[in-house]
């Protein structure tokens, strides 16, 4: 494995990285300027993570990196060498949908579905953070995920249901 340190400082060549994506070790060869989002989509064919704005403004590219929700468009793949990434492809248990996936279906929490992978990854991160409790707090904590179809209130309904169930579990 090539380590990205001094020895490679004057080389623009692609770097070899290792990521653990959805529990599977993956090696990819990327140039330094490839975002994590493009690395996932174009190099690993994980196209569930969406590119909405590519500038940090919409949340469609949200993934969970080392346990935290982040925007994959505003970080470089090379910066995440060695990280553990979870994308929408990795949250179900085989054919058994993740509770948030089920709740999104039950609450009709999408129309076109483009924002949905980011919404769900963001909601997983939010629930794990255990900070937002009330509906108002959840809305604020989810405000980094825009839905241009306007499914927002159903999205919050779906998240609240799963969150409450977690609280009582």
């Amino acid at each position: 494995m090539e380590i990205v340190t001094k020895s490679t400082r004057n080389v623009l060549q692609p770097r070899l990285l290792s990521l653990r994506v959805n529990g599977v070790p993956r090696i990819l060869e990327v140039s330094p300027w490839v975002s994590l989002l493009d690395g996932l989509r174009d190099h690993l064919d994980l196209t569930g993570t969406k590119k909405g704005c590519d500038h940090g403004q919409c949340g469609a590219c949200t993934v969970i990196c080392d346990g935290k929700r982040i925007l994959s468009c505003l970080t470089l793949a090379v910066m995440k060498n060695g990280s553990e990434i979870t994308t929408i492809e990795g949250i179900s248990n085989g054919d058994e949908l993740h509770p948030l996936q089920k709740a999104f279906i039950e609450h009709d929490a999408f129309q076109c579905g483009y924002c949905t992978p980011g919404q769900i990854c963001s909601a997983i991160g939010m629930i794990d953070e255990k900070k937002a409790q009330t509906r108002a707090e959840v809305k604020d904590s989810m405000s980094g995920n825009l839905c241009r179809c306007g499914a927002n209130s159903n999205i919050i309904d779906a998240i609240m249901e799963v969150k409450e169930r977690r609280n009582h579990a």
Partner: peptide
């Protein structure tokens, strides 16, 4: 400021 994802980064 910003959003939860951005504040995490």
């Amino acid at each position: 400021g910003a959003s939860a994802q951005i504040r995490n980064m």
